[in-house]
Every structure is written in C-alpha cells, then in structure tokens.
C-alpha cells in the first residue's frame, strides 16, 4: 500500500505518505461510498459532518453509506429517528443515497426493521456493489451461528474486494475502550483465510488507521457525531490518527485499487491513500 495524504512528503510512523493525491480519482465505473460511525447524537456536529458529506456527494456522486454502529444514541422514538438520522442526512436520502447499517452497543436490535437502514431485517447481512462485497456484522453478539454464516459467506464470495464492517474494533489505540481481543481471536483468522482486505469499525470516538495486520487494513472511525477529544494514544501500530474533531470517510474502489479519503467536519482532508488488493 502507498498511503497518500499529508500535505508534504513525510515518514509518519514508518509508513510512507506522499503528497500525490488527496482527492479520490473518480475513475469511470468505480464504486464510491462514504463511511460514518457513532453518529446518531442529533447534535450540531453530526449535522455539520452530514453537510460535508452532501458536498462530497455532489462532487463524487457516491450513492451509498456504510454505518459502523451507534446509529441512534439515547431515545429511539419517531422524533429521535428524525432528529438523529432523517434530518441530518435528509439531502443525501433525497438524492437516493442508501444507508447500510451495522448495530452498535447503543442501538436497539430492532433497528434492523427500520427500512432506511437497509438491513433486510437481519442483524448481520451482506450486499454487493460492483466488484466489492460488503459484510455487515453484529459485533455485540458474535455467536457461533453468525461466525458460521460469515465463514460461509466469505468463502462463497467471488468478489474482488471483501470488506467487513461492524462496531467494535479488533485493533484500537483509543484510551477509552481499546481493542476487543476476544472478537479479534474469533474473526481475524476468518478474515485472513478468506481474502478480506479492509475492515471498518467504530465504537472509539476518534479516527485511527492501523498498520496492516496479516495484509488486512483496519480503520477505526467512531467520530461522525460523537467525539472523545485527545483520546488516542498512538502506538507503533498507529499509521494515522485524528481525535480533535469529527469526520467521515470517502472510499472509491476502481479495479484492484481502493482509494480512501478521510474528511473532517470542517472539510479538511486528514488522511488519504490507496490500498492495492494484492
């Protein structure tokens, strides 16, 4: 992987970052989507991130969003669903953007019946877009049935890109939660055996890109609404971190390349790069 993203060429924690491309290349026929996590507060900051997302939708034409859990904090009344989801993302929903949710520990599992979350009434599910298949998992309750489903679904997938997303991170340098190592022990061997290249999680209210483990790139993005300022304690595992504001991520998949760009609430690109499938 060549990570691309700083304003100048630097060596950051052992990973080469180059000032080549900050914006996505917008290649013809590519798969483009956004990623948000721990967003459902209904607070001003969530709305401001959503506004940035709409700006990027106009620019990139992304047509779906992955939700990494904690989609709705606190109350879940119809008014809450409006204030914490339908209003902030209204312009995106109006433009036909589809949201694909995974469940966080603050979510009611019955959110799987909420149609705008496109979960097909399931706690865990997969869907395909172009040459990529996405696997939304319920990390709150990783029972043997879900593990078996995941193992089979990944094995049977012939997609070029297999991307897994769920709430609790397998790797994290956040001070508040840290990684879920029991979940890691169960999932990582399955990911490695089945060619998963990218794993996205939230829970920790910050952004962190972890150095690859066994060829898998782990991202933590749990600050699209919530924020725990200065909560990242970078380790040798940290490739890039951001814990002073909210953000979301843009991703573009073009053939064997996956481009990512993480954008703050104020519109600044805080990380970007490209991951090769091989």
């Amino acid at each position: 992987m060549i990570a691309i993203g700083s304003r100048c060429a630097i060596l950051f924690l052992g990973i080469l970052t180059l000032d080549a491309v900050e914006d996505l290349p917008l290649k013809q026929g590519s798969v483009r989507f956004a990623v948000i996590g721990d967003m459902g507060t209904g607070d001003k900051a969530q709305y401001e991130v959503a506004q940035q997302m709409e700006r990027y939708r106009e620019k990139t034409g992304f047509d779906f969003v992955l939700m990494l859990g904690d989609n709705i904090y606190g109350g879940k009344s119809p008014a809450d669903m409006k204030r914490k989801f339908e209003y902030p993302y209204g312009p995106l929903l109006d433009a036909g953007v589809k949201f694909y949710a995974s469940l966080g520990n603050h979510d009611n599992p019955n959110e799987r019946f909420y149609k705008p979350f496109n979960m097909g009434e399931k706690r865990f599910y997969s869907f395909r877009k172009g040459n990529a298949e996405f696997f939304a998992l319920d990390s709150n309750y990783m029972d043997p049935q879900q593990v078996e489903w995941l193992t089979n679904a990944l094995r049977d997938s012939n997609s070029t890109w297999k991307i897994c997303y769920f709430h609790h991170p397998l790797y994290s340098d956040g001070k508040f939660h840290g990684p879920d190592t029991d979940l890691r022990a169960r999932l990582e061997p399955i990911f490695q055996a089945s060619g998963v290249r990218v794993v996205l999680s939230g829970h920790e209210h910050l952004y962190e890109r972890i150095k690859p483990h066994g060829g898998i790139y782990y991202f933590v993005l749990g600050n699209s609404g919530e924020l725990r300022p200065h909560n990242l304690k970078p380790s040798p595992d940290t490739a890039k971190g951001f814990d002073t504001d909210r953000d979301f991520m843009m991703v573009e998949i073009a053939g064997d390349e996956l481009y990512f760009q993480t954008i703050s609430r104020t519109g600044e690109t805080i990380d970007s790069g490209v991951i090769d499938r091989k």
Binding site: Y73, G74, G75, K76, N105, H106, P109, S139, N140, Y141, M142, D143, P144, Q145, V147, H168, D180, D182, L183, A185, R186
Partner: peptide
C-alpha cells in the same frame, strides 16, 4: 431505553448451549 447493551464475548457464547436467534 438508552442503556447500552453489553457485548457478550464470543468465547463465552461458543461455550454456552446454543440458543435460537430470538433469544440471547
């Protein structure tokens, strides 16, 4: 309402009698 659900660790679930999906 409003209280987060504690994760049940996978290693525990692996060791306990299986439940139907409706019950956890």
């Amino acid at each position: 309402d409003g209280v987060p659900l504690q994760t049940t660790p996978p290693s525990l679930l692996e060791n306990l009698p299986a439940l139907p999906p409706e019950i956890e």
